[in-house]
Amino acid sequence: MTVAPDLLARLDMLQARYLDALDSKNMPGWLDCFSTAAAAAYVCTALENYERNLPVALMLDDCRARLEDRVTYITEIWKGTFQDYRTRHFVQRLEATAQADGVIAMRSNVSVLYTPEDTGGSEVLAIGSYYDKVCFATGEPLFLAKSAVLDTRVLPRYLVYPL
């Protein structure tokens, strides 16, 4: 089922809010893009795994509790140990389809460039697809599930922040 233009605009605003939170390292803001449902999920994995039904991911936050823990990892546990870097996410929506249950399934291209604090040179961090499920339980669009599936099979570095 096609999605009306005004609804598409709201989906894009949610996506922009998500990207802006990550690019400004605002982890509570990242968490606020997800539904408060216990089943809310974020997965980041390589296409190599995804295509072969190999379920291990780079980040597997398959419930709201793990999304909350992801924020703790970054803001408390890992604080002061890593070489920090700034990301810029570029996303292009390719399709959005309304499901019978009112959830919208959305697929986008995503590329993430990054600039490490210490070298200052910008490089590609990862490219791939977003597979999103957006719900409207409270009226506002929120991610019920977001999967970043990366063409990038071998990352150029470790990841601190979700993509």
Partner: peptide, 10 residues
């Protein structure tokens, strides 16, 4: 096998 994580460290 249940999956891979691959990275190239500098």
């Amino acid at each position: 096998l249940i999956g891979y994580q691959k990275v190239r460290y500098k």
